[in-house]
Write a protein that binds this DNA or RNA. Sequence first.
DNA 1: CCATTTACCTACCCATCGGTCGGTAATTGT
DNA 2: ACAATTACCGACCGATGGGTAGGTAAATGG
Lengths: 205, 205
Amino acid sequence: MTDTASRPGPGRPPSMTDPVGSILGAAAGLFAGKGYEGASLQDVARAVGMTKAGIYHYFGSKQDLYDAIVLSVLSDMLENAQAAVAQADGHDTRLRAFMVSHGRYLQENHDKYRASFIGRAGGDTTGYTENQIDARRNYTRFLEQIIRDGCADGAFETDDVPTTARGILGMLNWMARWYQPTGPKNAAEIADGYATLILAGLAPR
Amino acid sequence: MTDTASRPGPGRPPSMTDPVGSILGAAAGLFAGKGYEGASLQDVARAVGMTKAGIYHYFGSKQDLYDAIVLSVLSDMLENAQAAVAQADGHDTRLRAFMVSHGRYLQENHDKYRASFIGRAGGDTTGYTENQIDARRNYTRFLEQIIRDGCADGAFETDDVPTTARGILGMLNWMARWYQPTGPKNAAEIADGYATLILAGLAPR
DNA sequence: CCATTTACCTACCCATCGGTCGGTAATTGT
DNA sequence: ACAATTACCGACCGATGGGTAGGTAAATGG
């Protein structure tokens, strides 16, 4: 469908569009829609106006391609979250900034996000590389630290920080399954609503 | 791995164990671990001590087999939730009963649950049959009704019931990705903790 | 102007996939 | 006792999967 590159024949002039970028984009769309196993490299090649062998010129394997997507998503999300949180002051504001930043990323990178979070079936460790697991852990730890800091200052109250963090990420990540950009609220707004709910839940009584 | 049935050769005696049940069980385990596309009927057959063709004696297609699992999970969960909620009085208690019942189902049917909720990649409508979508909607509506009733009586406060319901289900369903029965808390306890958090968040201020 | 590199393509390999076909031994109904 | 049914199995099918080999034309560097 996304057929940006024309094919004037073998030995084409320097392609206007960065091929790595369009491969990544097409792959993200397909993994998001049909899943990692469900989408073939044939599909990706077709979407990008190339052959399967052409893709192997840029990526060593299907897994490599998927890796590149997930890693970029995770590192971008962490970077965004850090920037957003750094600008916020107060524990409530910080947690809200984290969650809204997460929602905004989904909103602006729907395919990549979905590919990363629901692109593969099975558990958290199935088919994910070490790098991916590390990146996920970094992101999770960052959220946990926000919560922990809030607890230390008496702004939040929880008896189990990791489980709370997982719950928050669950609300957010599950959006990948149902969120549609055409809905009445955008993802950042939804995340903001969830932040309000969670913040009230975490308030010490 | 799970090789309960022995194979004494063609024309075996009446198998002690219900073949449909063991196929369903083996398939659930494999779909949970490797995903719908990642697990082959060959795998299922091997796990159950049968041939692929043997499975087609009981199920018309791979999709049928998956359908049977998902539909049973969804209808069992709804039934459990209805029973649990019926016994509870007060809006808080009812919502908590719903969530704990959800957690308990995960705990007691880990493979089937995972197969149903993260067994397929992609969005909520990809690769799911009409029946599955209906069953999911019934379950979601039931939760929404609990929340709406609470709001009507002034026990809860939300401006967006469907989105709140999705958030709650997100926390719960995402557990399929990370919950391990060997952890310090069981799934029902975790769900109970989430209920406490959500209930505080929903309290009118 | 020529050698190298880049950026692909065509053709192919082999494993595996979902699914089918025709059999066959035990079980069941009469 | 015998026909029908049940519960499978072995062999097979066409399609497709990830991945590879070897080529070829344009772009690039000297």
